[in-house]
Computed example of a mutant assay.
Amino acid sequence: MTDAIFAMAGAQRPWLNGVPMPSEAIADLADGFGARIAGGEQIRLGRAGLSAAEPPSAVTAAAG
């Protein structure tokens, strides 16, 4: 019964239901490059510019 109650509560509250996908520009950039590399392309990013500050955690994840 506890599982059912948490499932119903989580459906209404994203913070209880799971972690949402990142929406930062740098995360989208890294995701796009990762998909292209997984598809067999050989690409190299030399430089990227952002129009707003990004969270340090997103920058660190994209750099890795």
Score class of each variant (00 low, 15 high):
Trp15Ile: 08
Pro20Ser: 01
Ala58Arg: 05
Leu45Trp: 00
Ala52His: 13
Gly64Lys: 13
Ile43Phe: 00
Ser23Phe: 01
Glu54Ile: 05
Ala35Trp: 07
Pro56Gly: 04
Ala25Gly: 15
Pro56Trp: 02
Ala62Tyr: 04
Gly40Asp: 03
Ala25Gln: 11
Asp28Glu: 09
Ala58Lys: 04
Ile43Met: 06
Arg13Tyr: 12
Ala4Gln: 15
Phe33Ser: 08
Gly10Leu: 11
Ala7Trp: 03
Met1Trp: 11
Gly49Leu: 05
Pro55Asn: 02
Gly46His: 01
Arg13Val: 14
Gln42Gly: 13
Thr60Lys: 03
Leu45Glu: 00
Asp31Tyr: 07
Ala35Lys: 09
Leu50Ala: 03
Ile37Trp: 02
Gly46Arg: 02
Ala61Cys: 10
Glu41Ala: 14
Trp15Arg: 05
Pro56Ile: 10
Ala9Asp: 07
Asp31Gly: 12
Met21Glu: 15
Ala35Tyr: 07
Leu45Val: 06
Gln42His: 11
Pro14Cys: 05
Gly34Pro: 10
Ala58His: 06
Gly64Arg: 13
Ile26Ala: 08
Ala25Pro: 14
Pro14Ile: 10
Pro55Trp: 00
Ala63His: 07
Leu50Cys: 04
Phe33Ile: 15
Ala38Pro: 12
Phe33Thr: 14
Ala4Cys: 07
Asp28Pro: 05
Val19Pro: 03
Val19Ala: 00
Ile37Leu: 04
Ala9Lys: 04
Asp28Ala: 06
Ala4Ile: 13
Ile37Val: 12
Pro20Trp: 03
